[in-house]
Amino acid sequence: MIKISNLNHRYMKSNGKGVITLEDINLNIEKGSFVSIIGHNGSGKSTFAKHLNGLIVPQSGKIEVDGIQIKNDDNIWKIRNMVGMVFQNPDNQFIGGTIEEDIAFGLENIGVPGNEMEDRIQDAALKVGMEEYLKRPPHKLSGGQKQRSAIGAVLAMQPEYIVLDEPTSMLDPKGRQEVIEVLRKRNKEDKITIILITHYMDEVVYSDKVVVMDKGRIVISGQPKEVFKQKEMLLKIGLELPKAALLQDHLKKIGVELGDCLLTKEELVRKIWELY
């Protein structure tokens, strides 16, 4: 479990003014769960993500990953083994000349013996469906493929948690779907905890917990259905509803009542089906 208590963060602007980016964050992330963090640009969600594996050390407050507190240089490398991270721009996190070299990079860093690497690379590539492309250089891959291999590179290091900071925002719809599918599968099959930061509402509907951030604070947190019930609040802070919920909302306005908040296309189709 990742336990975050009273986390604060501020940075100094060049004019000497302090800007608060995170304010009194309290959150527990259960092992094996799929947690989504949503929020507008500048809501502090990326800063928050970087705290989770010690890229930023807490200025005040406490973060514990499986009981180990992120504090100083001694344990930061241990934490980074436990919490993997995938970033937004697929090109800027590709270190190796080919996919296999890129996956090997992380393994080399954590001191995996050379003869074990081949197996772990194969295994990780298989898990993200990139096993046929291992010898390809990054510029011969699509955005979705690059992001999947980035996830593979993190998986090969066998972390307990994976934090993804807007992994789909530079992808086309197809690539976006591929990435989300890979994440859901790894969460279900390998029980890896996924912490997904995004601003696409449709990506969060399958998560166990949704955390909504605004101006450095957590505004709403709970199961997707409960979160998306608070429509006014979400709209106020500049977020929208998942497409299914949006359509349900429009139908309601013209007098078609579908009951509880609906989040996925399947649910919506089933409800409409039942109407007649």
Binding site: N53, W77, M85, N89, I95, E108, M117
Partner: peptide, 27 residues
């Protein structure tokens, strides 16, 4: 420069800390 910055962060996130304790793929 932006790329270099992000790449450095990605490398750190993947546990890169220079030569220390590093093994080699295909020695």
């Amino acid at each position: 420069f932006t790329r270099a910055d992000e790449l450095a962060m990605a490398m750190e996130a993947r546990g890169y800390r220079g030569d220390e304790g590093r093994t080699r793929f295909r020695e």
